[in-house]
Design a protein around this nucleic acid. Structure first.
Length: 104
DNA sequence: AAAGTGACGCATT
DNA sequence: TAATGCGCCACTT
C-alpha cells in the first residue's frame, strides 16, 4: 500500500465529507480532474481504512452501492441513518438535503 | 508491456 | 419508463 496516486486523492476527499452529508462518485471524479466515476468507486472498493467514510459516497441518483463490500447496502444505509441522513426511498439518499457541494 | 477489471454516468433504443 | 451499450482511465496481474 504505498500511496497510489489516484486512490489516495479519492480517500483524501472522502475523509473530508462531513457527517450527515454525502457526495457522488462523479462529483469526486470531477474534483480530481477526471471523468471516470467508476475509478472512484473502484478506489473505495479497495479501501479498508475506517477513516475513509465510503458509506457517504453514493451514485448520481442518490442510490447506495448495490455491491457494497462489507455488509451489503443495508449496512451503508444503517450508517447513514445513524448520522441523520434521510432517504427518499429504500435505497435512495435525499440528495436535496444532504449532497455536499464540493469540499475544497 | 498488454490485457483485464471496475462501488458509474449518460445516450440511445 | 426500463433496459442495454459504451466511454472513461488508473490499478493489477
Amino acid at each position: 500500500m504505498k500511496g497510489k496516486g489516484f486512490f489516495e486523492k479519492v480517500y483524501k476527499i472522502v475523509r473530508r465529507i462531513p457527517s450527515g452529508k454525502v457526495m457522488t462518485y462523479g462529483q469526486i471524479a470531477e474534483i480530481l480532474g477526471s471523468k471516470d466515476a467508476r475509478k472512484v468507486g473502484w478506489a473505495l472498493h479497495s479501501n479498508k481504512d475506517p477513516k475513509v467514510f465510503c458509506h457517504r459516497v453514493v451514485n448520481k441518483k442518490g442510490k447506495v452501492a448495490a455491491n457494497y463490500a462489507f455488509e451489503g447496502w443495508r449496512e451503508q444505509k444503517r450508517r447513514l441513518l445513524a448520522e441523520g441522513v434521510t432517504f427518499t426511498d429504500e435505497t435512495h439518499v435525499d440528495l436535496g438535503k444532504h449532497l455536499c457541494a464540493t469540499i475544497d
